[in-house]
Design a protein around this nucleic acid. Structure first.
Lengths: 135, 135
DNA sequence: TAGTTTCTCCTACGAACGTAGGAGAGAGCC
DNA sequence: GGCTCTCTCCTACGTTCGTAGGAGAAACTA
């Protein structure tokens, strides 16, 4: 993997990306205003983060409207989440089991979730070397 | 929650804690030497992290042998993992579903795991559903 | 065209992290 | 009782993150 890094995104960076993922290409102002008014970061704060995301190749400038740049996500929500989960699993030595235990104990996993998971797993084709991109 | 903080631990901090969890109360030197020789951090690096963990109340001094302090974990491995998982879930808006999807897609969850999970969930004392999970 | 608004771009700064060196104190060896 | 080894404690430094101000350019507005 030389050309397509999967940058690690921080909490705030994720929140900005969330805006792009849900609203599509947006300006800094639009991203900033997607934050709940209470505790909304300053315009320049959002801007700084956008620039950092740009440096990380998590988003890119797409065009310019007036004097404002429009940014769009380069990494998908799925890819970003995958990265997060893989990191977490890494901390657990790659075993998913502690994760499952906790989810169950804290009641965050319902029977329905498990049924879905089972169905999904059954439906999966046998370990395909190519990763089936969803979305 | 005033008295029992669940400090956020970083990757390196987790690794130090791991030594304490598996080997029991240890000195700085013992913790340092639990690292694989290749890429082992300097003694003082480990020490600095130990002090920071102490400041976070993740571990405490237990006694002194010679001029060396012996440290023991205050937070349990389980609690630390829970904290990690909760944080991750927070980033996903508290929904476990994306997590499950990814585990399944990346082949890190087996049917056996799911059966176990289901069994565990069934055996759990009923919790009143605070929020109606979306499907 | 001049004023006002809005953006961009640059700079800054404190906290947290990973990393580690150096001074000095205490322990053990001979 | 020195000498050496080890450990503690203090200090430091580059990076990333969250936060944001200010200068100046560009664009809309009257």
């Amino acid at each position: 993997m030389i050309a397509v890094p999967k940058p690690k995104l921080t909490k705030l960076e994720l929140k900005l990306m969330e805006a792009l993922w849900t609203k599509g290409p947006s300006s800094v102002r639009e991203i900033q205003e997607s934050f709940p008014a209470k505790g909304r970061p300053a315009y320049t704060t959002v801007q700084t983060i956008v620039y950092r995301l740009e440096a990380k190749n998590a988003l890119r400038r797409t065009k310019k409207i007036g004097n404002a740049h429009i940014f769009e996500a380069v990494v998908s929500r799925t890819a970003a989440q995958r990265r997060l989960i893989d990191d977490l699993l890494g901390l657990f030595g790659g075993r998913a089991q502690p994760l499952m235990s906790h989810l169950i104990e804290s009641g965050q996993l319902t029977l329905g979730d498990i049924e879905d998971a089972r169905a999904a797993l059954r439906a999966l084709p046998k370990k395909d070397p190519k990763e089936p991109k969803k979305e």
